[in-house]
Design a protein around this nucleic acid. Sequence first.
DNA 1: GATTGCCGGATTGTCGGACAATGCTAGCGG
DNA 2: CCGCTAGCATTGTCCGACAATCCGGCAATC
Lengths: 238, 238
Amino acid sequence: MSRSQPDRRAYERLRIEPVSTVDRVVEELRRAVFEGELPPGTPLREVALAESLDVSRSTVREALGALVAEGLADRVPNKGTQVRALDPEAIHDVGRARTVIEMAGLERWPVASEPARARVRAALAEFARVADTGASAAELTAAHLAIHAALAGLTESPRLEAMADTLYTEIKLALASVDRIRRNAGEQVHSHAGLVELLEAGRTEEAAAELRHHLDHAEQAMLGSLGWTLTDGDASGS
Amino acid sequence: MSRSQPDRRAYERLRIEPVSTVDRVVEELRRAVFEGELPPGTPLREVALAESLDVSRSTVREALGALVAEGLADRVPNKGTQVRALDPEAIHDVGRARTVIEMAGLERWPVASEPARARVRAALAEFARVADTGASAAELTAAHLAIHAALAGLTESPRLEAMADTLYTEIKLALASVDRIRRNAGEQVHSHAGLVELLEAGRTEEAAAELRHHLDHAEQAMLGSLGWTLTDGDASGS
DNA sequence: GATTGCCGGATTGTCGGACAATGCTAGCGG
DNA sequence: CCGCTAGCATTGTCCGACAATCCGGCAATC
């Protein structure tokens, strides 16, 4: 063994990602979904997409499979694939799940590695910056979720982080329908900053309580924002 | 609305699941992997599989995608798909992740729904029964994992349960290589029974400690059983 | 009038073949 | 010993096709 690698470390961070056609299709669909161009429930027809995107149906099919695996779409055998529609129950479940993971991360603050903690601080700073410069709603939520992702990162478990990521994906999906994101970004920043301060001060208990409160509140806000827009869809006229 | 449905309720429980060809292929591959017919690292060649299973390559491809999503295989672009090989680091991570989820479930014992608690008791009883009748190693681990799945079920969050399931899948995968499952099934039963007793008695703290200890121990046992069997595979003769 | 049987269009599931792009290996020449 | 090149194996993507299934409507039946 031991091929010649004199300066491996210098190149350690270099990475390239091969972009397959499928990847591009997935990316485009993801964008359209998050952008609200494809509202929840929209059927994703294979032939039509293939023609529109000028790729073969096989490619579209594979991309749709990826979307389903990602939680952005639902597939019913022999019926087709649709943009995922989240009901209040799903929102609640996402809330419960992420509470478990983020709380686990938070409790590990004292023993977490320095980079993991730094990531939380960095995410917080970035959120503050974004909130200040008054960015788009999507950017705001992205920055906000980055903080929570950093909290999940405190677990220092790739699997838990990945799980948290899928949850955040669902949240972004739910929020895609709601354009009127709450404007209280300032208050949000303050709340998170307080959370981190408590952590830095070693008052983990209080931080946990704060986080739990925050998550409960966030869930309520989300449900309130879109709870009634999705219940029973009585769109059938006639 | 309200079409005429006089006796809808009578049919409420009826369900059928369409079995697509892809499903069958996935099932067969899963079986082969768990059975050890396809050891970790085995390449899953598309054409060869297609010919062997007498299905088209498209179908195999889709099945492989499902396996990857399930965590049973890894796919490297332009190189192919292989049966997943778990390194010690992965084992450790699975351990951390499931600890978080199962602990969360356990802490919810007092407030969990009755069916959720009943599931734990049932799984425990089943494990004891299986251990008594001296079943196969695979059945034993399945019954064992069912207990832990029931613990995860205490969270009563479908998403967390699903996440736990993928973790258990990985554990089964890792254990597939190890035929010589620890024989101390009796002791295992005892340990879990004690855990549940503590829960029933409301001594949650002690139960948590017990579970944590059990999980740590299990991880050590797994690492010890296969830690050295998977490192560098020097199979190239010539 | 409600239920059932049947038909036609739309869509998905699966197939087979085809070809370019990529990765791997071995041989060739310097 | 090293780099280059050619060749082979395998995957990525495309195309066209057909059966299976779903859905809505319409006629037939009790």
